[in-house]
Amino acid sequence: MEKFSSHTGIGVPLRRSNVDTDQIIPAVFLKRVTRTGFEDGLFSAWRQDSSFILNQEPFTRGSVLVAGPDFGTGSSREHAVWALMDYGFRVVVSARFADIFRGNSAKAGLVAAQVAQPDVELLWKLLENEPGTEVTVDLREKTVQAKDITVPFEIDDYIRWRLLEGLDDIGLTLRHEEAITAFESQRPAHKPVTV
C-alpha cells in the first residue's frame, strides 16, 4: 500500500446522506475478477443524470469527496472503495461512515475523514460557491483545509499510523504467527470443521 501523508485536490460536494454502496457501485459491476477498472461503475445510476455533480467540470477531476452523513452503508463490497479510488478519489469526507466501509477504506488506502456535520456544511458552501476549489487533507495534522477554512477530522489512530507508513495488514499479523499457532492448539475439540 502506498504511504499517505497529505493530499491536495479538487473538492466535490455531494449533498446526499445515506450514500449506500449500491449507489457507489451497483452490483452489476461487481462481476469483475480483477482489482482495477471499477471507475465506470462509480455512481453509475446517478451519473446518467447530466446535472449530477460528477458530470460537471471541474468536478470530473475531483479527488476529495465531501458527502452527507452515513456514507458507505449497506453491502460490504470493497469494490465501492476501489471504484472511488479508480476514479481518482483519495479522500472521502463525511460526518459518519458505515463501519465496514471505513474498514475497507483503510485496507485499500482511501482516507475516510470524519468531519463534524456543521464543518461539512461549510465545505459544501465553499465548494458550491467556488467550484474547483482545492482541498488539502493532512493526515499528520488531521485537518481538512480549503481557502480560509481549516477543520479537524477524526480517524482511528491505528488506521492513521498504517496509512502514514503504508503498511500491509497481513504482513503485520504474520509477525504474530506463533501466537496464532498457540491459540489453535488450545481450541476446544467441539468447534466445527467444514471438511
Partner: peptide
C-alpha cells in the same frame, strides 16, 4: 461482514 482485503487476511492468517 468483511471486505475483500479482510477476506484475504482471514484466508492467510485465520
Amino acid at each position: 461482514g468483511i471486505g475483500t482485503s479482510e477476506v484475504e487476511h482471514v484466508l492467510a492468517t485465520q
